[in-house]
Design a binder for these strands. Structure first.
Lengths: 331, 331
DNA sequence: CTGAAAGCGCTAACAT
DNA sequence: ATGTTAGCGCTTTCAG
């Protein structure tokens, strides 16, 4: 074996063994069409025989291409992101890239520092549920390749699941059950989704002659559910839309503890259709979307993005999954 | 600003601006103690002013240290891994490293190809719930830095949650409820955990005069639960231990559909204490462990590992969380 | 189509 | 304590 004392063989070893220049090896590997078919084959065979593996770092340094993308999520323990992560990971791998994962724990500071730190070692960022301001994101987009997930900022590529039409579906569902008063248990103040959802709820509710009230914000986690449930009971509405399923599930538990029957006394709706929504009690009515697909698409947009073109803003369909947490208004 | 036409400043720019050699800049940045306090401060100031950011790739190439670790999980959609991932991500970041995530989708081939691919661009691997053979792992360990999570192989550093003592807790709990026959709904054939758990169940059951039967294997996911439930009913045991909570939850649903009451007709126990076990119906009795801690520890072992020393095999405690899916044996 | 050679940005001996 | 000088392994002009 022609490998230099225990170290991994380099293109230099391959070149020598194959009797060609290193540049030829490099081309045979990276731009197969720019080298004679015979030599290419020969080089590839030798490389194979030597057990040559290209060193991604060395390749990245001169070319600037790291073949790596970073995915930043706001809370890795939220099952909602499983789909996103899996989709992104699959697509990343399929494109021959590697996925770096960052959990920003709902903190915009951690988000920026993460990006700052990774900048230079990745080719781009997919930022899911960003907590940064529009301005921060727009600025970042001028110096970094990025695509947004569940967030839209003018001029920045993004993919979201249709919250507007989805919210319409929710409101119409509630209206058809005779509800005339609904509360929205809001998510984090910095959450773009939270403000959009509230916006859509107001608009749809108005069209159906319903009154809508926003309560909160609440932490978008199961623990936030107790306070959200209490606030809802205090308000007296017959229907509640929680910022996400985690919060809705937390509410369900508190409501049960306080003997408020769902859906008889109160209808509850969530967003995301996460793991568990089909076996909590009662099973949760929630707005579903194809988040795995969203993750894939976000990576696609990132890797396919050309500077200069208009930033694509993709909107994936959403659909209401009606389970047992919603029922007729009895007041 | 002294940055060369739009490109990021390099240590070369800093060196020139500060009137020192690049090596001094390099030292000031990486080995602060090996440079005069005054010059260090000066260099740092200049670097700051120029907006210098060290290029991780360029740093990695000559040194071989990428400041990156890879985490490989067998199924990213299994909530069990949330804790592991978050713990690993935190500890990785705390150590100034970056986390690369790989989902191997229960496939040993994907697992090896992933490692193969990443080898060279990471400093080490944390492999959770590996589906590779002991031999493969042992071989890999000779050429790569790695630590195992939820898996033990002689000579390879690992951290697991105590399945043996945990299984003893489960069996004693069932025995105290009067159960004399228990079935184990097995996980994947290549799962080390599955075989260890079965082993422990047999041993503990024998000590308590219980008969234990293994059924399966079943896919360790909710969808596997239906078949597992049917097999259990066919067998006639009064207690069932599922390979993991996903499977147990799937069983719960099928049992309810078939009008088998839990725990009156059958007691069900799971492993992992994942998200959802406290609100499924009935809430699931399951073996819990600190998986976030396990993730952190695995990264610690990896980064702290010295070649030559004995491979640490850490065992974290497990504890049985008794909920409502287990009750007295009525037959 | 292929080879020679100059880097990519940083580290690490080796000198001074 | 600091400067000089080779590289790390690969890509990429530029010649031939």
């Amino acid at each position: 074996m022609a490998e230099r004392n225990g170290k991994r063989p380099t293109i230099y070893d391959v070149a020598q063994e194959a009797g060609v220049a290193t540049s030829t090896v490099s081309r045979a590997l990276a731009n197969p069409e720019r080298v004679n078919a015979r030599t290419r084959e020969h080089v590839l065979t030798v490389a194979e025989r030597l057990g040559y593996r290209t060193n991604p770092l060395a390749r990245a340094l001169p070319s600037g291409r790291t073949q790596t993308v970073a995915l930043s999520v706001s809370d890795i323990t939220n099952p909602h992101f499983f789909g996103v992560i899996r989709g992104a990971e699959q697509q990343t791998r399929a494109a021959g890239y590697t996925l770096i994962l960052g959990d920003t724990e709902e903190s915009p500071d951690l988000e920026t520092s993460n990006i700052e730190r990774l900048s230079g070692s990745v080719d781009g960022f997919v930022i899911a549920a960003s907590r940064m301001s529009d301005e921060q994101i727009a600025t970042l987009a001028t110096s970094h390749r990025l695509t947004l997930l569940s967030r839209q900022v003018p001029g920045v590529p993004s993919v979201i699941v249709d919250h507007e039409d989805g919210t319409r579906q929710i409101i119409e569902h509630l209206a058809s059950l005779g509800h005339t008063s609904v509360v929205y248990l809001a998510g984090p103040r910095r959450s773009w989704l939270a403000s959009r959802r509230w916006h859509s709820i107001q608009a749809s509710a108005a069209r159906h002659g319903m009154t809508a009230t926003r309560l909160g914000p609440f932490p978008p986690a199961v623990v936030g559910g107790a306070a959200a449930a209490d606030a809802t009971i205090g308000h007296g509405a017959t229907a509640a839309i929680a910022h996400n399923d985690l919060l809705a599930i937390g509410m369900l538990r508190r409501l049960a503890a306080r003997d408020v029957h769902v859906p008889r006394d109160l209808s509850v709706v969530g967003y995301d259709d996460i793991f568990g929504t089909d076996f909590c009690s009662p099973p949760l009515t929630t707005l579903a979307g194809h988040f795995e697909e969203a993750g894939r698409l976000a990576v696609d947009l990132l890797l396919g993005s050309r500077r200069g073109g208009p930033a694509p803003q993709r909107v994936l369909p959403s659909y209401l999954v009606v389970r047992e947490s919603t029922g007729p208004a009895l007041r």
